[in-house]
Amino acid sequence: MHCRAPYFQAQDLDALDRRLIDSYQRGLPVRTRPFHTVAERLGTSEAEVIARLERLQSLGVLSRVGPVFDHSRAGASLLAAVAVPEAERDAFAELINAAPGVNHNYAREDQAREHGYNLWFVMTAPDAPELEARLGALEARLGVPLLRLPMLEGFHIDLSFPIPWAELERI
């Protein structure tokens, strides 16, 4: 994966596009003909709503239109980290990525420490025993201890943010 600057122009998104994003990042109606309901609320047609959602997806402004699942209710998962030598980080990352159940793997930098935890990943499994089996197998393969960080309590699950439209127009 790599980082890219925004490749769309905020000026290309008109008021209706922005209302679609602002209003429906928190939830679409889960009912018959959902885009028809959205269109009625926004004073436009169902076909127009669908066309705009397709365009926003193709621009990469929307990742997708669909369900957001609660991982902890749809299986077992756990955040883990390892501290590995910088020169060997890519090799360790390959082993982690190849392990069944790993669905995120981030290189992270702790600027205050030279030898901190620098690979962070999420291990998933259908259930808790299988999760532990996968973690144990990966730990043995890596030969370094895993920092296991299960979620004990979640304080926030809302992922909507105000979109800074005015600021984006200056990019």
Binding site: C3, P6, Y24, R26, P34, G60, V65, V68, R73, L168
Partner: peptide
């Protein structure tokens, strides 16, 4: 639709939404 609604009610689905790519929207 009924099963989607039931999964939403039980919390398996948090919401069905237009999911923004926040990185593209300036949260870099």
């Amino acid at each position: 639709l009924e099963r989607m609604q039931a999964m939403q009610a039980s919390g398996v689905i948090r919401r069905v939404a237009a999911v923004p790519n926040h990185y593209r929207l300036g949260y870099v």
